[in-house]
């Protein structure tokens, strides 16, 4: 750990990596909370994996993979969202198809792109040590967009997450806000892919919010705690992986997963303990 702190002062790429993790944790806290309470983790997984298609295409045509990822994520969010609104029954099949098609397209493009194919691994599992400085500004911009959208339309997002029927009866344009929420999920997925890669994104998107949900009973508190947990997991994961030269992404995810499992068990125990104590007191 002290080795990491010493290196952090010395190397710019480590500082960039730390900042990238902190920037990603804002999205993971704010939007991850909606993903957890609205139970759309599978949908977010579909969006994340279809992103490889956009990255591969961007790489093949010599464009910025980040822009390709963002475009692909938004496109698949709108497609999945529209399908769900139009014919509800086919939703999971559609997500599964988009998931696989996106990856297949991406792999084909990457295979046909001249040069070496090490990029594929960093797309899949992330390489936080390679995040360029200008991309940090882009990440900060996207964070700002997420927070602004959620602040402005908090009531509407809360309503469509909690009770779609009521939202519709109160005249909230449910389809519009649903698609907007999925676009915010898409943006968050792209942010997190910079840090842990597209395979592991789902864990970082859902676990901090799920852990927060074990202990607090308001959306705002969940967002705050999930953001802090996201920051903790990315920073600590980076630090722990540095000494033994482990890949940072998987280290962060194992950390988050371990805490989640412990938290799920202990919160269950607490609930049972309280129930037993109450029963005895009666």
């Amino acid at each position: 750990m002290s080795e990491f702190l010493a290196a952090l002062g010395e190397y710019g790429f480590l500082q960039s990596a730390l900042i990238a993790g902190l920037l990603a944790s804002v999205g993971c806290g704010v939007i991850g909370t909606f993903v957890v309470v609205k139970r759309i983790a599978f949908m977010a997984g579909g969006i994340a994996h279809s992103v490889l298609g956009g990255m591969g295409a961007a790489l093949y045509f010599g464009l910025d993979p980040f822009a390709g990822a963002l475009a692909a994520a938004i496109a698949s969010a709108l497609l999945i969202g529209t399908v769900r609104l139009a014919w509800k029954t086919q939703e999971d099949t559609m997500i599964g198809a988009l998931w696989a098609i996106g990856m297949a397209v991406g792999v084909l493009f990457i295979a046909k792109t001249p040069g070496y194919a090490s990029d594929l691994m960093s797309f899949l599992f992330g390489n936080i040590l390679l995040v360029p400085t200008e991309e940090l500004w882009l990440m900060a911009g996207l964070d700002l967009l997420l927070v602004a959208a959620v602040t402005l339309f908090y009531r509407q997002f809360l309503a469509i997450s909690f009770d779609e029927e009521l939202a519709r009866l109160r005249g909230v344009p449910v389809a519009f806000f649903y698609l907007l929420l999925l676009c915010l999920v898409a943006i968050t997925v792209v942010l997190l892919i910079q840090v842990v890669g597209l395979i592991l994104v789902i864990a970082l998107l859902t676990l901090p919010a799920a852990i927060a949900g074990h202990y607090v009973h308001s959306l705002g508190a969940m967002m705050l705690i999930a953001t802090l947990l996201g920051a903790l997991f990315t920073s600590l994961g980076l630090a722990l992986s540095f000494g033994p030269d482990l890949p940072a992404g998987p280290t962060m995810i194992l950390l988050a997963g371990g805490v989640y499992v412990c938290s799920a068990f202990s919160s269950q125990m607490i609930v049972r303990h309280r129930a037993r104590r109450r029963a005895k007191a009666a």
Partner: peptide, 22 residues
Amino acid sequence: FPSFPRDFPISVEQVVLMGRLG
């Protein structure tokens, strides 16, 4: 039937406020 999940992290006050939407 309530058309929402009972385990949603929300207070009674917030639920009632939703009646003010629109």
